[in-house]
Design a protein around this nucleic acid. Structure first.
Lengths: 219, 219, 219, 219
DNA sequence: GATGAATGAGCCTTCATTCAT
DNA sequence: GATGAATGAAGGCTCATTCAT
């Protein structure tokens, strides 16, 4: 029963936390709860218990359950975008290095934690969330797709490959998503390293002079 | 509201139907409802209305909502398996032809309908369903993975390729799943043909002497 | 679950039984079901399963659940009355012998079976049944009370006792009912013989020259 | 219908009451409802209406209907026990006075109200409640039986009677229960005074130097 | 700000009753 | 007569939301 639940974040519950801290605390609890119980079984009571806060506070900070869930989704989307934007910014400029940075960003241990994966999976699955997501963050995905496509185009160009950039870009994008899903649904999942090696192996198939299964080939 | 719902299958509702017909009718309605409303918002009343039957009948035939959902998942899993088993049986024996048959099977218009895709997506997303699925159909997936792996092994062998069969097999498996998910989640989805071409392009990257983006290369 | 229930009387289910046989079969099944499950949890499906008959037959023979329960109560009441009427008719005429016959009748093994006791207990407990019972069989009880009172009056008279017949009669009546209830509710119930000995001991307290704890004192 | 029910206790419904007050209020309403409608027809809506509260609150405080009913039974059992324990404590020490106190306690106007009697009767009748009761309060009854037996033993001893204490004790116990039942089931019930006189008359039959039908004989 | 009691809409489930076969 | 599928009303339970303290 919920009553027996141990508050996960209780230590960090000073009587007076700033508005934003409280909101983030509740969003984190929402992610954990969705990951653990699934979207359908997530109740505000669960979220409050997980956060170590009282029931009423959730509505105080988010007004409705739907708003809490929407904001959680927005948070995940922003976090995901920030992650790859930062990775690209920090990576060297050659196309292959940029693609490699993108791949590694997707399997970095914050973004690719079991809770995140499970929560994403739940949001993808919930039909109602798809329109919400597309309305609020559809532009993120278009931006991501465009960006990976332009990197692949540069790489095809620079490397003298014959592949069609648009399709290769989609393959790279889709295989990363597919591996995430695979990690969630397989009876005996594999490690994050093996997951990333799988994606690199795919990159190597298209760009053999730049990638092997361990990643970018050093020059 | 549900009360306004128009029964989809009402024409086919004689007062008495065989046990199995009714069960199938309700499972079909469940798939449609999950696809339309998502897992969390699917109610027995929705399902009954979609089927053009009274809601009491759902419990009469399935006892509980959970059993209905479980049996729906089992039906989808069996349908999926039957589809690829049949496709393999009808395909010529060379490894490349078998792999091609597998790919085409996945994008056949019964299996890859919007309703099926959406329902699968909902089940993947629902944390509670994952253990159920693995318990009941985990063996299906292991069988599928083993089979695609052995086909890839034969193809690597026959074709003199250098790829690692296990990893290529996973890539093929994962890209098909990933494309399905992509079709569901993209703001502007592409056609089934384009989806299949994407998968074939990936096969071509690994097995260029057997595949191009249009599929198996005729000899 | 009901589906697993073994029909108790199935052996005696010829395809065509007379109307009255079927009704009695269903009434017997009702008594057994109430005894086993209690009044509140008795469903027509239980009754039908216990009787080894189909669900629909119950309504065919009794129209409504309430009528089935009412007729079951009437049957028990008639059976109870027939039992003491017959016992009195077969007993010698002296008042003490008549009282003894009445006591023994109450603990006879048909009337005082666990099923009968339990069913009676359930009907007593169900507030709604009390008016029904009083309306339909209240006269039985008045007749019984009058009869036991007149026997006690004769016994007081014949035996030269000083007790007030009306009150002694009530005591005898009430102690028999109370022992029945005790048999149902005690953690460690006693035997029917001990139950009867208890009633006889009470009779002996009022009529020491006619009764001892083993019953009527032979002359 | 329930919707038309007038809240009985509404006056005592401040927006916030202590946990225990609310629970007691709901238990009281449960007793009243069972008394009025019987066990089988008691719904949570009835109980809530009787208490003048919303039905959601019942589950909030008791989680399930079964727990509400069980706790109601436990309350009645505790109340009954407290009543006789207190009566014994306040009575003089001679055995006859103790027995008299026990009898009077049973017919005191809180314990022997129509609602209490009717509720007890319903619980006795409900087969499912018997195991629950025995498990939770069986020890109460054993304690009561032991206590009345030891009082009777002392009385037999002190008074030089020849009766068997164990059986007399059972008779006293059973006649009190039987009279309660009689009060519920008779077409024309008698008064509580007459009920008590009946029990005293029984005591007088066994202990004529200590009791008459009006109770303890003053010395 | 924070809490948790209170409310009531909506859902799953049970089950008496009906009725086509 | 007999069967069991079908219906729908009613009840228990969950839970988002409100609100007094």
């Amino acid at each position: 029963m919920a009553a027996v639940e141990k508050p996960v974040n209780q230590a960090s519950t000073p009587r007076k936390a700033s508005r934003d801290q409280r909101r983030q605390q509740l969003i984190d609890a929402t992610i954990d709860t969705i990951a653990k119980r699934g979207y359908a079984r997530t109740t505000l009571t669960d979220v409050a218990n997980t956060a170590g806060l009282s029931h009423g506070l959730v509505n105080f900070h988010f007004e409705t359950k739907e708003k809490l869930l929407t904001e959680t989704l927005l948070f995940l989307a922003a976090e995901y975008r920030d992650n790859w934007v930062k990775a690209l910014a920090e990576a060297p400029s050659p196309a292959a290095a940029q693609l490699d940075a993108l791949i590694r960003a997707d399997f970095n241990d914050v973004i690719c934690s079991p809770e995140r994966l499970s929560a994403w999976c739940s949001f993808w699955g919930e039909a109602q969330c798809r329109p919400i997501y597309q309305q609020e963050c559809g532009s993120n995905d278009i931006e991501y797709a465009d960006m990976i496509e332009s990197i692949c185009a540069r790489l095809v160009d620079e490397g003298g490959y014959k592949a069609e950039a648009k399709r290769v870009a989609r393959i790279m994008r889709v295989i990363m998503e597919g591996v995430w899903l695979d990690l969630m649904t397989m009876t005996t999942p594999y490690s994050r390293e093996e997951a990333m090696r799988t994606v690199h192996a795919c990159a190597a198939a298209f760009f053999p002079r730049h990638f092997n299964e361990d990643g970018l080939i050093a020059r």
